[in-house]
């Protein structure tokens, strides 16, 4: 048995992996364990130490209406951001991947579309804060078109969409680059074969591009989900969750309860719940995506 194990695995390889694995365990597993442990504890100022409180933090969390508001907003924000990111990134990547009459102009646009990604989130928040002002340039343009003044960040029915839009503006170049890279890696021979079969450009897109890009798009959605779900800086700078908590995200809840109010046990419980929600969502998504891919094959 021992021999067979040695035959199957290169034991020396494990030795070489050991430092990296130790580092991983120390940097991921240990903090994770501590957060889970803390979520069952409460800091007692009288004793000066953490004390075990059972499920109290979770009971408190699930009965807090603000938590559920933040969960709802976060899902809307995440799904909306993914849709907007792909909505901007995919068509632009297709456009930039197409044959242009002048390569220099195409390359110029490839550079130009990356520009928003160079803005730090607070800088983008300040820029869009100016544009969104009630008497700012956007509202001026809208008034010239006969549309009334829109309080982009002051109207609870607009605010979440407005911050999603800014989030999409800042981050779509990242996804555009990833998709463009994927498009460029599709073998040209597939398109040539499709052309020989008489496929027009829509059919080539549906039967060649989309299937070839499926895995990459799935990865892009996963990355986007993971980053949007715990998004903080941009929206915090723009609205701090207002008006009427309409842009209050789960990361704000964690920050305010756990860090600003020093309720580390409660904050840890929030962290654990966030991790669980993300793990469940990602698992379901990956499971469904793999099943679909298998069915397609």
């Amino acid at each position: 048995m021992r021999r067979r194990f040695r035959d199957r695995y290169d034991m020396e390889g494990f030795l070489f992996l050991a430092p990296a694995l130790t580092l991983l365990v120390l940097s991921i597993a240990f903090p994770l364990f501590r957060v889970i442990q803390r979520s069952f504890q409460e800091y007692s100022a009288q004793v000066g130490a953490f004390q075990y409180v059972g499920l109290k933090q979770y009971q408190h969390l699930f009965s807090d209406p603000l938590f559920w508001i933040s969960v709802r907003n976060t899902f809307i924000f995440t799904i909306g951001s993914i849709a907007l990111h792909l909505g901007f990134a995919y068509p632009i990547a297709l456009l930039l991947n197409a044959r242009w009459p002048n390569v220099k102009i195409r390359n110029f646009f490839r550079g130009a579309f990356i520009l928003p990604f160079l803005f730090s989130p607070p800088a983008a928040a300040l820029l869009w804060g100016l544009l969104f002002r009630p008497l700012g340039p956007l509202n001026y343009g809208l008034s010239k078109l006969g549309v009334g003044q829109i309080a982009f960040l002051g109207d609870s029915s607009w605010a979440l969409f407005s911050v999603m839009l800014v989030n999409s503006w800042v981050y779509f170049p990242l996804y555009m680059i990833l998709i463009l890279g994927g498009l460029q890696s599709i073998p040209k021979i597939f398109y040539d074969a499709a052309r020989v079969d008489g496929a027009n450009w829509i059919q080539r897109f549906i039967y060649v591009t989309l299937p070839q890009m499926r895995t990459l798009v799935m990865t892009v959605i996963l990355i986007d989900f993971a980053t949007s779900f715990i998004h903080f800086d941009l929206v915090w700078t723009m609205t701090k969750g207002g008006p009427l908590r309409s842009t209050y995200l789960i990361s704000f809840f964690l920050y305010e309860k756990g860090l600003r109010n020093f309720r580390l046990g409660y904050g840890s419980a929030v962290g654990v719940v966030i991790a669980l929600i993300m793990a469940i969502c990602i698992s379901v998504y990956v499971f469904v995506a793999i099943r679909r891919e298998e069915a397609a094959v």
């Binding site: 002002r133 009630p134 002051g154």
Partner: peptide, 15 residues
């Protein structure tokens, strides 16, 4: 400023 309730709810210290 800026003449609407919703507009005022978007005005912060910086502005």
């Amino acid at each position: 400023y800026p003449g609407t309730v919703k507009g005022a709810l978007a005005t912060g210290e910086k502005e």
